[in-house]
Design a protein around this nucleic acid. Structure first.
Lengths: 225, 225
DNA sequence: GTTGTATGAATGAAGG
DNA sequence: CCTTCATTCATACAAC
């Protein structure tokens, strides 16, 4: 077997460990990025697959004036809204399956609509009406929301409306997660130091990219083959 | 130097070629995904929050305002989602009690989760998938959109858009495939199919995913180290 | 073009 | 299973 040594290339344990780590890093990054991208698509591209896949052409700019916009979400016609509110106020707080279908058919005479649209509308309406009532505990502040009857459609209620949505939209979290992941992988392998020029990132999004960029490169190792 | 041979591991040219290909594939995929993600962000990242559970900000650290927005409902981590979908699609439409427990344990590796979360997820998922499926044929209603401007002259413009239902796409094929793939990567399995051509597709998302799918497995090779 | 708000839609959870 | 509620996400529109 001694002779055979001459016909194979060799690598040390250290090299192999390095290689293994590098592959692991790439695998992890790929996985995370794919997952991330999938997530983005799933949530922001849910209905009108017009992004990413290629060129996103803004439909609004395409036609000088009217529609042609494949809209992503249903917007009730004014008459539909009227009818919906009327139905809502005609008692029957229970839309129920059967009624939904019927209502949908009726409303479809006045614009595109689907059963789920109707269903969602009632759901949201009720939920939000209830939600509004729930605001009365403000310690020291303004008016208490008077039960506004929604009978009059066609009007936009622009109220001060102490909503306080808060909304901690955790945008950058995924970046942090990935960064952490890469960091740990670097720790594990403990061989490479990130090559310099790590300019401080201003955005968290960029941070993830930067982490990737500071990931150990493969090329130097490849040269050893 | 003969003795030294005993202290190094060897790999054949073929193995090295394979390795090199794999690394190249990962590098390519990573870069492309990053490009895609940048693209997404650049076009509509106004404040697009990706919801990712598992980490929540301590409400006490919030601004001087109030509101104790602690998250009150489980939000699956993306990786958890991946795994769940994978499991769902691996046949086995019936997650029995025992399985639930096992799945929960596995998923708890990637974020907070409880058995009821898993149970509910499967319930909801199945139900809604079925529900969506029910919307198919229905030549539906052609609406008469003539009426749109006459009904309520006294209000803001509600565009009577035509809003073609587009597609369902609640469960894109590629997502499933990716999920499966990622899941499989965690297992160690045989079968190694080369090709290692990296294919370097354009920046179409599905293409990238396909590239990823055709990526040679690492695990079998790693086993040789 | 930026920000705030209203609201359609998605989804986790609870009850039967 | 199925239905319903509660909460959250994402987007259209308005005001600045």
């Amino acid at each position: 077997t001694v002779e055979r040594v001459l016909f194979v290339k060799v690598m040390t344990d250290e090299q192999m460990e390095v290689l293994r780590s590098q592959i692991a890093v790439y695998a992890t990054i790929s996985e995370q990025l794919i997952e991330m991208h999938k997530f983005v698509n799933a949530h922001q591209d849910s209905l009108a697959g017009m992004r990413l896949g290629g060129i996103y052409v803004d439909p609004l700019t395409a036609s000088g004036g009217r529609k042609l916009t494949a809209r992503q979400r249903w917007i009730p016609t004014s008459i539909q809204l009227q009818m919906l509110e009327t139905i809502l106020n005609q008692g029957n707080g229970t839309p129920s399956k059967q009624k939904i279908k019927h209502i949908t058919i009726e409303l479809s005479q006045h614009g595109q609509i689907s059963e789920s649209n109707v269903y969602n509308w009632f759901q949201n309406r009720r939920a939000r009406s209830k939600q509004k009532q729930k605001m009365a505990a403000l310690p020291s502040n303004y008016e208490s929301e008077i039960e506004t009857n929604e009978d009059s459609p066609n009007e936009k209620k622009l109220r001060p409306d102490k909503n306080v949505p808060v909304n901690i939209s955790s945008d950058p979290i995924y970046s942090v997660q990935i960064s952490a992941e890469v960091y740990l992988l670097n720790q594990t392998q403990g061989i490479y130091q990130s090559s310099g020029s790590s300019k401080s990132c201003g955005s968290l999004d960029q941070m993830s990219y930067e982490s990737f960029l500071s990931t150990p490169r493969l090329d130097p190792l490849m040269d050893k083959f």
